[in-house]
Design a protein around this nucleic acid. Structure first.
Lengths: 203, 203
DNA sequence: GTCGTACCATAGCGTTGCTATGTCATGATG
DNA sequence: CATCATGACATAGCAACGCTATGGTACGAC
């Protein structure tokens, strides 16, 4: 048997790439391995090339997002919790804008990347719970509403991260859109707005 | 005076770049000028470099989008017309996915690109008209609602163009989100849904 | 007719991602 | 314990990338 691949090298490279991304340094093959003690070939044995490295960086981004969403507590108000997921999603994107852009970058084939599905499933579960506890109308399809909610949030976060929209519009616009979607799904307007605004006020 | 810069060269290069983008060929400096009779330096005199070329390509994309939105007719139903703008936006993005991605690509500084504002202003005007004709509540701020509407549409189109969501979900999800936003802004639900569905059925 | 200006072709620079080649550590096998 | 096969990793070099220095040349002003 050959020498086993060192998983520490994998994590080192991915984390270093994420760090360089956050520091707005160009993530280049040679710059990535410089000072790490490993050579450029390590990138090929571990990731098969730069596209593979980027894929791993995106996975890392989705994993961190999943962790962040997992940290959103369950309270007695399922609509508040649903909105809190949106808040966490937005805050995560704004805190790591370069990573967020990399996650949805042009070359990404998200459908092929396993970790990309976990945050969405979390969202689907939260919608299902809000429906099952009577806040949303019974015929509400959790996947449909979760997709609408995610797409709207992703659109807003994308435009803010890209500098098209100023950051301070994110909370009010996200609140308004969230309330519109959930009221359309059957929640009472006054109650819904209170739940959503409470989620944005905290966090 | 020197020899005047040939505007035809500019258009030639931008259109060729858009063509290569649509054909999924890598848009490279040398590949771009190959066979055109002009040399690589033309890209620098006209655009200052590849980033400048990409900026011009994005402008071209926004110009085409503006033209497409201008082709959306005014009817007696302002909510239908507003939804029709969304339909045209989505169809434009799906018809030219690579160009759409380039328009919102990582390196883009859309705030600095003049043409990027025109489609949005068209949207703002349509929202203002729907409000002024009584379909939306009087206190509705056209820019706020237009931003929500755009962000939601952009999020959906982005995810479809990226292959995350299948293309056939675009019409139903966009319809549902549009209705939710406009009903929240004061339109009657039944009437609104009819207007929006009519816009998607046509086009 | 002369000249200055800026467009543009040519050639070459540094850097990029990648691959061909060689070395070495490792665990299974006798 | 010695041997060997295997795959991880270092080194060196390749084609292609964006870009720039240089020089020729067409154009408009005088």
């Amino acid at each position: 048997m050959p020498r086993p691949a060192d998983p520490a090298v994998r994590r080192l490279l991915v984390e270093r790439a994420a760090r360089m991304l956050a520091d707005r340094e160009p993530v280049t093959l040679r710059a990535l391995v410089e000072g790490t003690g490993v050579s450029t070939m390590a990138v090929y044995t571990h990731f098969g090339g730069m596209p593979g490295l980027w894929s791993a960086v995106r996975q890392e981004g989705f994993s961190r997002l999943t962790g962040r969403l997992a940290g959103v507590p369950h309270t007695a108000d399922p609509v508040h919790d649903l909105a809190a997921l949106g808040v966490a999603y937005a805050r995560n994107g704004l805190a790591h804008p370069e990573l967020y852009r990399a996650m949805f970058d042009a070359g990404a084939r998200l459908a092929d990347e396993a970790a990309a599905g976990a945050p969405f499933e979390r969202l689907v579960a939260a919608v299902a719970r809000a429906r099952d506890e009577g806040r949303l109308a019974a015929p509400t399809d959790p996947r449909t509403l979760a997709t609408q909610y995610w797409a709207a949030g992703h659109g807003l976060v994308s435009l803010v991260v890209q500098g098209v929209l100023p950051g301070d519009v994110l909370a009010p616009l996200s609140t308004a859109t969230t309330v519109a979607l959930l009221v359309a799904a059957g929640d009472g307007e006054t109650r819904c707005r209170a739940s959503v605004e409470r989620a944005w006020a905290a966090g």
